[in-house]
């Protein structure tokens, strides 16, 4: 599996283009977004976020990675790799998922990215809905509220919400009416079991 979009945040064009060239030559990803600074972030990314970020620590405001994640709305599941060629406190590069140095050879850089990829892949759960998730979906499609589903299945409303989140993540479908089509296509429920959504 390739990365879809990698964002490179770096001021130097020489470094940025060099890294882009390397990623392209080895088909590491489909798209590369090159940004001079975090100020440009929201122009490039709105709903769709990159799946990997490579950033020079000098582009981080207040040298705070968590703050940046919060500001741009990316979870800590998305790896952020430090791109290093200046002096930084060890504390700063410890914040990153991993780091690459401009003195690294191509193979070393690629291996670091690939080993990230493998881990990310393993973390991704299976796509199939569990029986419990199917049961929750079926009831939701009947028009029940989270609370009603919780009562019916004797679980907490909070658990229902977690199931819902997982259903959306696994299927890639957010709207209930879209999920209704999914459920019919996958024989999870019948036409006459679906209320007007």
């Amino acid at each position: 599996m390739m990365y879809k979009t990698i964002a490179i945040i770096e001021k130097s064009n020489i470094i940025k283009e060099g890294l882009t060239h390397l990623l392209k030559a080895h088909n590491v990803c489909l798209q590369i977004a090159k940004l001079d600074s975090m100020d440009d972030w929201f122009f490039v990314f709105k709903d769709e976020k990159p799946d990997l970020i490579i950033i020079n620590p000098d582009r981080l405001k207040d040298a705070d990675l968590d703050k940046m994640r919060l500001k741009i709305g990316i979870s800590d599941k998305i790896p952020v790799i430090g791109l290093l060629y200046q002096y930084f406190d060890r504390e700063i590069y410890n914040m990153f998922t991993s780091t690459i140095y401009i003195t690294d050879t191509d193979d070393v850089v690629l291996n670091k990215l690939r080993s990230r990829q493998k881990k990310d892949q393993d973390a991704e759960s299976s796509e199939k809905l569990t029986d419990r998730e199917k049961a929750v979906l079926k009831l939701l499609l009947k028009g029940m509220s989270n609370k009603e589903v919780a009562d019916k299945l004797v679980i907490s409303p909070h658990t229902v919400i977690t199931h819902r989140k997982n259903i959306v993540e696994k299927t890639g479908i957010r709207s209930l009416s879209g999920l209704a089509i999914y459920a019919i296509l996958n024989n999870i429920t019948d036409m006459d079991e679906i209320s007007d959504l």
Partner: peptide, 12 residues
């Protein structure tokens, strides 16, 4: 919703 529809058409 457009993304939902894309998923339905491509995957399901």
């Amino acid at each position: 919703k457009l993304l939902d529809l894309k998923n339905i058409l491509i995957k399901y």
